Simulated scan of single mutants.
Amino acid sequence: MTPTTASIQVTCSNCNLRELCMPVGLDCQQMQRIEEVVATRRKIKRGDMLFQNGEDFTSLYAIRTGFFKTCVATEDGRYQVTGFQMAGEIIGLDGIVHNHHTCDAIALENAEVCVMPFNRIEEISREVTALQSHVHKVMSREIVREHSVMLLLGSMRAEERLAAFILNLVQRLHSRGFSSSELILRMTREEIGSYLGLKLETVSRTFSKFVEDGMVEVKQRHIRILNQEALQRLVNNSREGR
């Protein structure tokens, strides 16, 4: 299904997420040029694709509202979740290398993105060097995140993986003004398992253990962290044991 494209022009200077997806400290003239990067907004319905594997790469997307997952098809036909993206983050960087996307990006809830044509980013970056630097930082952050996931999957036990996942998710949400101890999971336990390299049963069992140990309270998709220090100790112990 084709996403709906809004005809209104986005004003980055009035967006409450601008500091997360755009450079900071720009003067009025630079901000005006930056706003020309954003072509349109798109509304993506839950379950629809923003882009898919093999599709021509034309734009990066700043997530304005909603959650996405990226995934790839494995050789045996299964889908492997490779990441979860939320408001204030930029998605679509996978397409830069070969000029086509290498994964599917699927909305986990109704979402809205700002469409930023890559040729326009490159053009304006020549004038506003802060934009080029910011794109490099975003790319570097993705590399660091992928490296962290590799370490997580390669050396952590199930409890440590899930603890790291919960802490990372709540920290990213907190930087966007949400609670530092409560969150609503937009993804299923099966999707979490796919991302963490765990079976669905293992994810459910580990959540139950966290509840029994008094670390979290779970009501369907609502998670409340009761003992953040205990979760952090699980992650730290894994790192110290490597």
Rank of each mutant, 00 (worst) to 15 (best):
V24P: 05
I192L: 10
L183M: 15
S148E: 13
D27A: 09
E217M: 12
F57G: 04
T202L: 02
L20R: 08
R221M: 13
L26V: 09
A164P: 08
E35A: 00
F68V: 02
I192V: 15
R42C: 12
R157Q: 15
N110W: 11
E229A: 11
R161V: 09
R224C: 14
E229K: 12
G154I: 08
A105I: 04
R224I: 15
A158L: 02
S133V: 08
E36Y: 09
E123A: 07
S13W: 15
S7Q: 11
F207G: 08
M215T: 03
N16L: 05
C12R: 10
Q220D: 11
Q85A: 06
E89K: 03
M139S: 14
G54V: 00
H134W: 12
E182A: 01
D76L: 09
L151F: 15
L185R: 05
V81P: 00
N119Q: 10
T65N: 03
R41F: 02
E182I: 01
F118Y: 12
E146P: 09
A73R: 14
M187K: 04
Q80D: 11
F67N: 05
S208N: 14
H136R: 14
R41A: 03
E112R: 07
N99T: 08
K43E: 14
D76K: 11
K69T: 04
H174W: 15
Q232V: 10
A6E: 15
R161A: 01
R78M: 06
R41K: 11
Y195S: 03
P3H: 09
R221F: 10
E36N: 10
A87P: 01
C103A: 13
H98K: 09
E89V: 01
P117R: 04
I96R: 12
V138T: 12
R42S: 11
I121C: 05
N168W: 07
E127Q: 07
G54D: 02
I143E: 10
I34T: 03
F68Y: 00
C12M: 15
F165H: 04
Q32Y: 07
R189Y: 15
S125Q: 07
V81R: 03
L153G: 13
G47C: 12
D48T: 12
P3E: 08
M187D: 10
F178Q: 04
H134Y: 13
N227L: 06
I8P: 05
R157K: 14
V72N: 00
E190H: 04
N53A: 06
Q80F: 13
F210Q: 08
G77A: 13
L167I: 04
N119D: 15
A163N: 02
D94S: 03
P117F: 05
S148Q: 14
I8Q: 09
I34Y: 00
F178A: 02
E160V: 02
T74K: 13
T202Q: 03
R172F: 05
V211G: 04
E112C: 04
V135F: 06
V97N: 07
F118W: 13
R78N: 06
G88C: 08
M1R: 14
S194W: 01
G88K: 06
P117A: 05
H98S: 10
M49T: 13
E55M: 15
S175M: 10
I34M: 07
L185F: 02
L50F: 07
V113E: 04
L162A: 07
E229G: 06
G47H: 14
G66L: 05
L108I: 09
V97H: 05
Q85C: 06
R161K: 12
G54A: 00
Q80V: 09
